[in-house]
Structures are given as structure tokens and as C-alpha cells.
Design a protein around this nucleic acid. Structure first.
Length: 491
RNA sequence: GCCCUCAUCGUCUAGGGGUCUAGGAUACCAGGUUUUCAUCCUGGCGGCAGGGGUUCGAAUCCCCUUGAGGGUACCA
């Protein structure tokens, strides 16, 4: 282990989405690359919206993508507790410290009064900043407010002198903010919970976090945090603000960006492979030195470099994800794909446990020929349907007409004969039969393939004929061929 | 409004003053393989936001404009 400590601090106010996961992934990558430690901290200071269910989902999804944490919620460690709601006494102690030092003060202004101030400022066209009303309250005034039953918040007292606060960012370089654009911001809410900007500093400092990697949406908050670090004499960690991931409308990807699936769970449920999503997500805002689009986890760690991260936001492109995922589906170990595919085939009602047990090898063949046609596993049942369902003709009349065409009966009979004659029933041998048929029979290739496909699958397109016949087996193939002929004879 | 960030094919990106006639991937189109769809292979289409500088030379450095995004909460 090195001294490097990173953290991923989700707020359990919703299921984890693509953007959060990418942040988690980059933290994980950098931690693993440097033998650092990754801490999972739950930021549940929003009492209204945080739930344990969301916390559990977040932990599950991290695990699903393969991002293991070394320390934190659900894992334990020496810097706990790792849930902010369980650290209130700590935040209070530090707030108290600031109060004592005169670097913070209690503010009794109500939300309504604040809202009014903001309105006024807006009308005047000036920045809506807190006016410092409670900054120098007399004892009497304070007593009066308390008597009124007002619950105070605690505000951070901005340094009097206007000064520049510089965020040294690993990705963006130095970013300078003038303290004049800040106001006396709230560090403790009237419900007794710390605000994000306060809790995050206390925790990162106490947990000895050395690198803060987070989304660019936090960049503007960082000067406030730096001021707190300074007021409390804490060491300031290194910052790296990641470019945001945009939805298809080019806005920050957030819960229910309406045209897109944003939650990790939605992708998991559709049958995107964790390896594929990992690969794809790591390429959002970063690229390896070599022109190689498919990288294993190990290769990604090896190549990953925080200074190589892009500065500009990236649009989440589902088409590219589909390609990556399809690639993984086609190239991963077949048994693994079979294992992942089974639940989808079960859901479709095609198979059950007993069937899997008794027909595993056959199932494997079916999935192998069907996997080339899908982007994600939820599409597999549709692709493989023909192997599970009774033969059905969408347009029976058209089918009969096709089977009645000249040469079709000859093709079917010859096909049966040749299948019967081959020594080995394999796709290769079956493929040879088709070549022979085309050469020997006085018909064109279309007359060989199309009616056969229609007779065997009821469809116009699908897996290669050699595979269809191979999977159907001799008996079923004969049966369907005969059935087609019978249909045509009835007319 | 104010503050901050960003800007290369539709999208993800490579590129850090001459090797850029700007490379790869995806998407799209065409050809080949499979006489099907898909896969796979080959080829093609397509981009340095605009304007000023600096320089012998700028996609690359500087400035402005424009555009996009983020922040400006008793959300995180």
C-alpha cells in the first residue's frame, strides 16, 4: 500500500447512475494503479431524500461492475464511521471550533427572509449573496430571536479581505476564484445536519484523503471548501475534476434524463456485461496511448494516467456502448455467456432449470449461434426464439406459394437424402451439402436457401442454415421439410 | 445576471508549433464473405466553431467573439 487514499462518496438519494459510476471507476482505477486505498463514504446528510435502500443498491452496483473498495461503509476500517449521519458529533465539534475562533456565526434568518433578500438582489441585478445580517448580532438581538423560537444555522464567516482562492487541479491546472464572489455560506443546517461543503471537508481531512477525484460540477464549490480547510488548519488534498458526462440532449446526465437510461441497474437488467460497461465508461474522458478500443481491466489499470484525462465533457453514446457490449458478448467465453443468458431465456418462458440441466450442450449451441446478432442479452430470446417455439408462419399463403415453386420439392428431397448420407452431422458437413445442392441441382442458390429457411424457421432471415439444421437436428429438420411439402400439396 | 470550465468528423477520441493531405473507433454508405439478417474483412463519406494576433511556419501558443456545460440552495 502506498500513502495514497481516495474516496468515492455517493449520496444515497437515488440509484447510482452512469455519471456517478464513472467517477467511482476513475477513483478505483487511480487507486489500483498506485496501490492506494479506496474509501466508500455515504453522504446522507440530506435527511429528506436519503434511504438505506439506495445505499444498498449503490454498494451492489459497485460490486457488480467490479469496483471493490478497501475501506468504508459495508467494509469497515479505522477511519469510521463512514456514514455521515453517524458522524454528527464530529461535525458539531468542528463547527464549535470555528464558532469559538470567530470564523463562523449563528444565523437566525428564516428561509422566507432569505428568499426575499435574493429576490431583491435579483431585481437590482446584483449577485444574490447573503447580506451578513446576523454576522454581528448583539446578545440582546440573539436572545430575541431565540425567544421567537428560531432555529439557527451556522454560517462560515468569509475573510474580510478580498483575496484569490486558487484550486490546484491535476486535470485543469490552477483555477482562481475571487473570494468576492462567495458569501457567508451555511455549514450547518437548522435541522442539525452539516451541509455538504462542510461535511466533505471534515471527512476528507479526518479520513486523510490525499486525492479528491470528482465531477466538474464540484469545481465551483471547491473554493468554499478550501477556505474551510484553511480555517481548520487541515492539509488540502490534491483535486482532480473530471469532465461531466452529458446525456443525448447535451445536458449533465442526471436522474431521468428523459431520453436515456441513466441508471446502472437498467443496463445490468438489459444484459450489458459489467466488463463491457467498465471498458466503455473508462473511455469516457480518457483514452489509452494505443489505438485499442477493447481493454481488459488489467490493461486499463496499466495504461491509466490521471493527467491523460480530458477536460471536455463527453456525450454518453449508447451506439458505441452497444458495439462494445456486442463485442464482449461475441468474444467472451461461451460458458460465461450461457450462464448470463439463462435468466433471460427463462424470463421469456423458453426454458426452466430442468431443461438447462438436461439440454446444456444443446443450449450452448443455440446461444452460440444467436449471440452474434445481439447488442445486449435481453435481445437474445428474440434472436433464439425459433429454436424454442413451434414452427409458425407469419404469412401462410405466401409460404405455401413459395413451397409450390418449381424445384423446391426436389431441393427438399435432395437435402434430406444428403443429410442422411453424411458420416458426421456437423455445421461444416451441412454447409458442404448446400454447395453440392447448388452445383448439382438445376436451380439457383435462392431456390435452395430461401424455401429451406422458410420451411425450417418460418422466417426470412436468421442464423446460417448450417447452424439452424445442426441445432434442429435431423429428425426435426425432416419433419419441418415434410410439413412444408404437405402444406403445398394440400393446395 | 455573476463566477468557473470547456471547444478536433454526428458521437467517443489521438494529436502539445513543421512528420497533418489531421490518425483510430463508432455510426452511416458501398463492396466482399455467408446467395438471408447479423458477424467478419476491405473501401468510402465526414472534423480542427469564427475572427484577430505571435511565428519562416499554427489544430497546436495568446487575445476577442460565439457556442456548450457547470456553479451560484438550510441538494449532494
Amino acid at each position: 500500500m502506498s500513502d495514497m487514499r481516495l474516496r468515492f462518496p455517493p449520496s444515497p438519494t437515488g440509484k447510482i447512475h452512469i455519471g456517478n459510476m464513472r467517477t467511482a471507476l476513475f477513483n478505483w482505477l487511480w487507486a489500483r494503479k498506485n496501490n492506494g486505498e479506496l474509501v466508500l463514504r455515504i453522504e446522507d446528510t440530506d435527511k429528506e431524500r436519503s434511504t438505506k435502500e439506495f445505499e444498498d443498491i449503490i454498494i451492489q452496483e459497485l460490486d457488480w461492475l467490479g469496483l471493490d473498495v478497501d475501506e468504508g461503509a459495508g467494509v469497515g476500517g479505522e477511519y469510521g464511521p463512514y456514514r455521515q449521519s453517524e458522524r454528527l458529533d464530529i461535525y458539531q465539534a468542528y463547527a464549535e471550533k470555528l464558532l469559538e475562533k470567530g470564523k463562523a456565526y449563528k444565523c437566525y434568518c428564516s428561509e422566507e427572509e432569505l428568499e426575499e433578500m435574493r429576490e431583491k438582489a435579483k431585481q437590482k441585478g446584483v449577485m444574490p449573496k447573503y447580506n451578513g445580517h446576523c454576522r454581528n448580532l448583539s446578545k440582546e438581538e440573539e436572545k430575541e430571536y431565540i425567544k421567537e423560537g428560531r432555529e439557527p444555522v451556522i454560517r462560515f464567516k468569509l475573510p474580510k479581505e478580498e483575496r484569490d482562492v486558487v484550486v490546484e487541479d491535476v486535470i485543469r491546472g490552477d483555477v482562481t476564484f475571487s473570494s468576492s464572489v462567495l458569501d457567508d455560506f451555511i455549514i450547518f443546517k437548522s435541522d442539525g445536519m452539516p451541509t455538504y461543503n462542510f461535511a466533505v471537508v471534515i471527512d476528507d481531512a479526518l479520513m486523510e484523503i490525499t486525492e479528491v477525484i470528482r465531477g466538474e460540477d464540484h469545481l465551483s464549490n471547491t473554493p468554499k471548501q478550501i477556505l474551510i480547510y484553511e480555517a481548520l488548519d487541515f492539509d488540502i488534498p490534491k483535486f482532480a475534476h473530471l469532465p461531466l458526462i452529458l446525456d443525448s440532449n447535451r445536458a449533465k446526465l442526471k436522474k431521468r434524463s428523459k431520453d436515456d437510461d441513466v441508471y446502472i441497474g437498467e443496463y445490468r437488467e438489459k444484459g450489458y456485461l459489467p466488463e463491457a460497461l467498465f471498458n466503455f465508461l473508462s473511455f469516457l474522458g480518457w483514452a489509452p496511448p494505443e489505438d485499442n478500443e477493447i481493454l481488459s481491466k488489467e490493461e486499463t489499470i496499466e495504461n491509466f494516467e490521471i493527467t491523460d484525462i480530458n477536460k471536455s465533457a463527453a456525450v454518453f453514446d449508447i451506439e458505441k456502448l452497444n458495439w462494445v457490449n456486442g463485442k464482449y458478448i461475441r468474444e467472451s467465453d461461451l460458458d460465461y455467456i450461457v450462464e448470463l443468458s439463462i435468466p433471460f431465456l427463462k424470463d421469456a418462458g423458453f426454458i426452466d432449470d430442468e431443461f438447462v440441466e438436461n439440454n446444456y450442450q444443446w443450449l450452448k449451441k443455440v446461444i452460440d449461434v444467436s449471440r452474434t446478432g445481439v447488442d445486449y442479452l435481453a435481445q437474445l430470446p428474440e434472436e433464439a426464439e425459433l429454436f424454442f417455439k413451434e414452427l409458425e408462419f407469419e404469412d401462410k399463403e405466401a409460404a405455401i406459394k413459395e413451397f409450390n415453386e418449381e424445384g423446391v420439392e426436389l431441393v427438399f428431397d435432395s437435402l434430406k437424402e444428403k443429410i442422411e448420407e453424411i458420416d458426421e452431422f456437423t455445421p461444416e458437413k451441412i454447409s458442404n451439402i448446400f454447395s453440392e445442392l447448388i452445383n448439382e441441382l438445376p436451380v439457383g442458390g435462392r431456390t435452395v436457401y430461401h424455401p429451406t429457411r422458410l420451411a425450417l424457421t418460418g422466417l426470412d432471415s436468421g442464423p446460417e442454415m448450417k447452424n439452424v439444421i445442426y441445432i434442429l437436428g435431423k429428425e426435426e429438420t425432416y419433419k419441418r421439410l415434410d410439413n412444408a411439402l404437405a402444406m403445398s400439396n394440400d393446395n
